[in-house]
Design a protein around this nucleic acid. Sequence first.
DNA 1: CCTACCGATCGGTAGG
DNA 2: CCTACCGATCGGTAGG
Lengths: 214, 214
Amino acid sequence: MDMMTAPAPAKRPRGRPRKTAEEASDGNRRDELIRSAARLFRRRGFEATRTRDIAEAVGMRSGSPFYHFETKQALLFAVMEEGMKRAVARQQQALDAVAGQPPLAQLRQLIRQHFEVLLGPGNDFIPVMLYESRAITPRQRATLARLQGDYEALWLPVLAALHQAGRLHGELKLARLLIFGALNWSVQWYDRRKGASLDALADAALALFTGSSE
Amino acid sequence: MDMMTAPAPAKRPRGRPRKTAEEASDGNRRDELIRSAARLFRRRGFEATRTRDIAEAVGMRSGSPFYHFETKQALLFAVMEEGMKRAVARQQQALDAVAGQPPLAQLRQLIRQHFEVLLGPGNDFIPVMLYESRAITPRQRATLARLQGDYEALWLPVLAALHQAGRLHGELKLARLLIFGALNWSVQWYDRRKGASLDALADAALALFTGSSE
DNA sequence: CCTACCGATCGGTAGG
DNA sequence: CCTACCGATCGGTAGG
């Protein structure tokens, strides 16, 4: 497929083209915007972040991000959707790697990978999704809810197995919500520079929830 | 004390008096502002809330909140400080009521009261503190940290006792952080209208953390 | 993707 | 606490 001779986009609304996620021919600039936006949204919050700052962070002029995204909010949503898709894929892979192992080991893997997505270097996408969902539309929220459902589905069999085996106590649905809370809140207090390792975190969480010390 | 003949405030900086927390002679308007601000800050976030909306919610004109608070940020901080002071006082009382009872019962009480402060009707102060602390100054944050230390101090002996008794697993400091996370995150998902009762929540949390089913 | 720009909003203020 | 107001900012746009 020769991309140089590809026909121009069918319609150029008001003479200003705008890339969609699909036609990511030179999507590197778009990706740079998403990455920079994620970092700033996480650090300062969505409302307090100026699109000018995002532009400057990637060496663009103030109006140029709107060549790639219709609105600031669309950029926020792109961060969230992109982050969630990656998180599901990564978690799926991590879980595949421990298939066949006992539920306790699988839960440990899920927790470890979850901390990675939340606290690992450069992983700003999911924290933004967790803490800025107020700023997106109900329609966008619904799209994310579907991805979040996929993510949760990876945990459910493992949690159910542990619950049935008596290693996880309390009503299962509430236990799940409380567990995610315990993990997600780490975004608020974890300090990569001086805190415990993500492995130590995972150990502590597993111990707390299941009484296990392995 | 005759408040009608009280002397005028010593200095009126630039002819515009402003009440401090101390001289709350007619602090009811001030309190109304704090309450309304708390509700709006919680619902929309600090940055997305207009001071005009807060004013309107208490029947004031757009500029009038600045008679009571120097800045929008000062109003935010007042919400947080007020909320934290109340939370400490309430939790202290709740704990006194179960003094002498076993640690498990005390933890259940602490958790139950914590959910009340987070999710009870009209309790918007602490959620705002938890989710908007990015917007205050380091100095203000330090003041809050002291109050949060007081709050935490109520939990520490109880958690330590359970940990030593083998009812709480994992490194104690991390366990504490994870527990607070599990509880605090409920602000994100709990729905007063259709969710479980706060008692059911407390039961589930206690069971999850300690394996207890009472 | 840049230049040049604008309308609207919003925190905050002077003076009473 | 109101009236009347303002400076600055900021998301977004037309046209190339």
